[in-house]
Design a protein around this nucleic acid. Structure first.
Lengths: 203, 203
DNA sequence: TCTTCCTTATGATGTACATCATAAACTCGC
DNA sequence: GCGAGTTTATGATGTACATCATAAGGAAGA
């Protein structure tokens, strides 16, 4: 969303990371604005008992880790590459300067954070007060909406049941059973190979 | 955080609401930027089975409902006054104009949204993967940090156990039992009248 | 001051989901 | 092209928290 020439103008540097490589860890202080040029980044929390919660996945064109960057506090989660990636990074003063000179980007960033806040608020209330199937259908609806270039096309989801579990605070077995049950009750559809989730007709 | 004369300059209007009055409801489209002048606003989601989840409380000087306003989508939660309140409201075009002419406020807003995003992310992972007592101590730590003017002073929390329950997705009885248990194990302290929670010594 | 509603409290019981176990299909790097 | 590690799958069992019930102490308002 931010032009590369603009990033270069404000002294952004390009960081190459291998699959599995860590970008930052929970607790570190945020000093850079990150933007994915290519690849895929995963943000996770790990509980005291070793359970994982995925805050989000970020692909080409998306920035991540902005909240602690702007709030100037420690990262509330860790980030690492799930595949070889190239990441733009830019320091605080330079980025603020960029914002000062580019109102539209500044405003767009407000929208990006707002979108994310809506997602978090939605999932927060889902996980807090709704049960497994409800949580899953809300997440699935959101994810299909995200990935669909054409909102009318029956988009297939490329997330595994394990990934859905990690984003909903459920366990794989529960996700597997819930999806199976929802499929039997025609609340969602599966592709012939049984692997990919299809969104049900939009209401 | 935004000067009143500035709000007036951009044609903000002052809205007076009585205790219990609704400001907007989940599903409505967001058309105004809201800022509390005085009083207290509560944002909540209600589940299909009638369970409540509180997204947040907002007092004097705080804005609320910005995410759907900037993202130009429907509210993900409802807001109402828990006491008689006065609220500044301002339309989209006017507010964008205000931002365009006031870089510091624009940047500050980025920080406000960032702070909120960090809170949501933190609670999301807590509720998803940690158990009751852990969730509660994280929330209590956050809330005491929020309200403490002096971070060293042993701040007392003025939230009821019901309110803590509504913010953690737990039920009152569980909060009561957890707090009692934590108090007995000296993980937190209670005031003599047993009603208010004291934060433990900062580590 | 009396009534009503909220808050804290505690015990008994229920349940959605986690956990543990086991396995077949599949995909991926070497 | 073959072990190693995912992914989907299903059954048996465990448990943290919810739910239900009941009650005493306070605050609020009429």
């Amino acid at each position: 969303m931010i032009d590369e020439s603009l990033l270069k103008k404000y002294h952004a540097s390009l960081l190459k990371v291998k699959k599995g490589e860590m970008l930052f860890e929970e607790g570190e202080t945020a000093t850079n604005f990150y933007l994915v040029k290519s690849g895929r980044i995963k943000m996770v929390n790990v509980s005291s008992e070793g359970r994982e919660f995925v805050q989000g996945y970020f692909g080409a064109g998306q920035s991540f880790g902005e909240p602690p960057f702007f709030a100037r506090v420690a990262y509330p989660a860790s980030a690492y590459a799930t595949e070889a990636s190239a990441i733009w990074k830019i320091g605080y003063d330079q980025f603020v300067l960029l914002l000062r000179n580019n109102f539209e980007i500044h405003l767009h960033l407000l929208k990006v954070l707002s979108d994310r806040l809506i997602y978090k608020s939605t999932m927060l209330s889902e996980i807090a007060i709704e049960e497994a199937e409800h949580r899953l259908s809300t997440l699935i609806e959101y994810l299909t909406g995200q990935s669909a270039s054409n909102p009318d096309a029956p988009a297939t989801l490329s997330f595994t049941r394990q990934q859905l579990a990690d984003m909903t605070g459920l366990r794989v077995e529960t996700v597997i059973r819930s999806i199976k049950s929802m499929e039997q009750r025609r609340l969602l559809e599966l592709t012939p190979d049984g692997k990919i989730i299809l969104k049900r007709k939009p209401k």
